[in-house]
């Protein structure tokens, strides 16, 4: 993936952005850093301060809380948002199991984009609600 339009195409396939216009995606693509993470790397560590939001573009990662695997992540999944939305140490450790590509938004840009792009914040809320429902944290509607 070498140019921004390819990044936009990849973002368009992600559920989080399915309410976003192409213009929104171009804005996100402009500010996202990309990195290739070697297999076995802990991208975020439980208890550390959070300074970024991560979107897995390719590859695979596991989520562990207190040493116990609690979730598996694949392309299109994201993590790291909780410590930014509700400033607190990272709640879990996320480790990539194969060489993976991530898109990264720093804390500042993450908050700016949530404020400025209503479609992104709606997608984020929907995803968080989905996770809460799936984890049983929400008992009823």
């Amino acid at each position: 993936m070498t140019n921004r339009s390819e990044v936009v195409a990849r973002l368009a396939e992600v559920d989080l952005f399915n309410r976003c216009t192409k213009g929104d995606l171009r804005i996100v693509a402009r500010h996202a850093q990309r990195a290739t993470i070697p297999a076995g790397t802990a991208v975020v560590s439980q208890g550390a301060a959070g300074d970024a939001f991560f979107l897995l573009l390719s590859g695979h990662a596991t989520v562990e809380r207190d040493g116990v695997a609690v979730a598996e992540l694949g392309p299109g999944d994201f993590f790291g948002e909780l410590a930014l939305l509700d400033p607190a140490p990272r709640a879990a450790t996320v480790t990539v199991t194969v060489s993976s590509e991530v898109a990264v938004l720093g804390a500042r840009m993450f908050k700016v984009l949530l404020r400025e792009l209503p479609a992104l914040s709606a997608g984020m809320l929907a995803s968080l609600a989905h996770r809460a429902r799936a984890s049983g944290a929400v008992g009823h509607e």
């Binding site: 990044v7 850093q33 990195a35 070697p38 802990a42 300074d51 990264v104």
Partner: peptide
């Protein structure tokens, strides 16, 4: 974003492999 501090688990390897490439 300090991707350079993301170290491979159980490794002393130079973290520069995870250097970011910004499309912006």
């Amino acid at each position: 974003v300090d991707l350079r501090t993301i170290a491979p688990v159980g490794s002393e390897k130079e973290p520069s492999q995870a250097a970011p490439e910004s499309p912006g």
